[in-house]
């Protein structure tokens, strides 16, 4: 669905000439910020990556859950929880009757759902163009306590919980994901706040000897 005219909503936070750019899934993104070795170290300590290119799909309404199931999508049964399907596509249940779906890097579930017939009472499509971020590293909790007032430790969050809260005054959706033995946080925010939140969190990451890294450190692209 996307064309290479798209540029990541974080772009305004990137100074000219920063890193190397590339096009992933039809969106211009920074694929590498610094040397591979440095990025590896940043990732261990406190890495922040831009995953805004991942396809997104939203639907809400009292029959949204049923409609998704009719399309063959496994949905979380609890409010404010999430599941990942076998291909790694994420299905987030925001409250009781709204869903946000994000494709795995090689997934095309969102494209499929966009093409499906959703003209039904109680099923309303919600366009999603959020900035989508990945955070990880041994110092990630240090960052989280600086930007957020609530306890986001692994112990406080259930394994499949979706949290809607604020980071540095910006509304975000957050999940904690264990993947291939690695713990990472996924964060979505309104794209217009993306550059601000990125600068804010990348600044904190730098204080902990971490920083921005290419998203290829998290996903095989």
């Amino acid at each position: 669905m996307q064309t290479d005219k798209f540029i990541t909503p974080i772009a305004h936070a990137f100074s000219a000439g920063l890193g190397s750019w590339g096009v992933i899934n039809g969106m211009q993104v920074v694929t590498q910020f610094v040397d591979k070795d440095v990025e590896e170290i940043r990732k261990e300590l406190l890495g922040i990556a831009d995953a805004s290119f991942l396809g997104k799909f939203g639907v809400k309404g009292r029959h949204a859950a049923q409609w998704l199931q009719d399309q063959g999508v496994d949905i979380p049964t609890q409010s404010n929880s999430w599941v990942a399907d076998a291909d790694g596509n994420l299905v987030l249940r925001l409250g009781g009757s709204e869903f946000l779906i994000e494709d795995a890097p090689d997934g095309n579930l969102c494209e499929k759902l966009l093409k499906a017939d959703a003209k039904r009472a109680g099923v309303y499509l919600v366009p999603h163009v959020e900035a989508s971020l990945v955070l990880s590293g041994s110092a990630v909790q240090e960052l989280l306590v600086e930007v957020c007032s609530i306890d986001l430790t692994r112990a406080a969050l259930g394994t499949q919980e979706v949290i809607m809260t604020q980071f540095a005054g910006v509304s975000v959706v957050l999940i904690h994901q264990d993947l291939e033995g690695e713990a990472r946080y996924r964060v979505w925010c309104d794209s217009s706040y993306g550059p601000y939140l990125w600068e804010f969190m990348a600044g904190i990451a730098s204080e902990h000897s971490g920083g921005p890294i290419g998203v290829g450190n998290y996903f095989s692209l």
Binding site: S79, N80, G95, S149, M164, T165, Q166, G169, S171
Partner: peptide, 17 residues
């Protein structure tokens, strides 16, 4: 910090409301 409990999302700082 004042707190308020959202019936759906739980107890949060008042600044979220």
């Amino acid at each position: 910090m004042k707190l308020l409990t959202c019936p759906v999302n739980g107890t949060r700082p008042l600044s979220e409301f």
